[in-house]
């Protein structure tokens, strides 16, 4: 598959006033295939949010190139087009909602793009239906739950009809129910609309649902592969300050104690099925 977002030999550091610049990424390479669902894991400060901000030209690398659908983020005139293609959802839903009515907020992106009013209306209604918030389209955002607000933010992004969505810990501030709703919505966008997803998270169970997991440590890629492959390296993950999904951890412990489990195990269902077979 063709790479949609590509980091080539990217080095990036934050300029800080009156101090040494903070280096975050050095010679970083990463290619996100079109239509893929990629999760990025990493300890605090490992550079995940920085990768997200480089994806749509909010930050520009000091050396190396970031390209989106062939467009370099270094070129100013590409930026609007890049941001239309790559939507962003952040951690705190309160700080990304701009309007006092749900449907007005969803309309914000298309309005900025200069889309025709009737077409905006159509997209807004569709986006709100897609994320299951159509019934609440006249509500005031501050009266919604965290999960609902985050789905409004997602609707605001898909109303711009992006090819890719980057979500930076979208569920970090949500309760388990909101987390599940948001994850389901994102999976649906990837599966049904073919939208490329870059999903930054702290939750292993969410990462396990991706097609590909990239583990970052101190601005480098530590592990990269399918969730099954990546979560086998429990020692490396722990060294990077991360955990493995509970089912995987238990299965690895059991294997070490000589229980004959086969393959790599990701979910509780898989583990319980194998254990049942062994016991019967």
């Amino acid at each position: 598959m063709r790479a949609f977002i590509e980091f080539k030999d990217v080095s990036f550091s934050y300029d800080v006033e009156d101090a040494q610049p903070v280096p975050v990424l050095q010679h970083f390479d990463l290619a996100i295939a079109q239509g893929d669902f990629v999760a990025i894991l990493g300890h605090n400060g490992s550079g995940k949010s920085t990768v997200a901000k480089l994806c749509n030209g909010i930050e520009i690398p000091q050396s190396g190139d970031v390209t989106v659908n062939g467009m370099n983020t270094k070129e100013e005139e590409n930026l609007l087009e890049i941001r239309r293609h790559v939507g962003m959802v952040f951690q705190n839903p309160d700080n990304q909602i701009v309007a006092t009515i749900v449907e007005d907020d969803v309309a914000f992106g298309p309005e900025n793009l200069g889309v025709e009013p009737a077409e905006i209306r159509r997209r807004v209604d569709q986006a709100l239906r897609d994320v299951g918030m159509y019934d609440l389209r006249f509500s005031e955002p501050h009266k919604l739950s965290g999960g609902q607000k985050q789905r409004v933010a997602i609707a605001g992004v898909i109303a711009m009809q992006p090819a890719c969505i980057v979500l930076d810990e979208p569920t970090a501030m949500l309760d388990p129910r909101g987390r599940k709703d948001v994850m389901k919505t994102v999976q649906m966008l990837n599966r049904d609309f073919g939208i490329t997803v870059l999903y930054i998270t702290h939750f292993m169970e969410e990462a396990a649902k991706a097609n590909r997991v990239v583990v970052m440590d101190k601005g480098r890629i530590l592990l990269d592969g399918t969730p099954r492959e990546v979560f086998q390296h429990d020692d490396a993950l722990r060294a990077a300050g991360l955990e493995v999904p509970q089912a995987t951890e238990l299965s690895l412990l059991l294997k070490r104690d000589g229980v004959p489990l086969s393959g790599s195990i990701l979910t509780i269902e898989e583990l319980s099925r194998q254990l049942e077979e062994l016991l019967s």
Binding site: I58, L80, R83, G87, M88, F90, N95, V98, M160
Partner: peptide
């Protein structure tokens, strides 16, 4: 953060 989010949503 809001200014970031607005820029990301193509506000200009």
């Amino acid at each position: 953060e809001l200014s970031f989010a607005m820029t990301c949503r193509c506000y200009h």
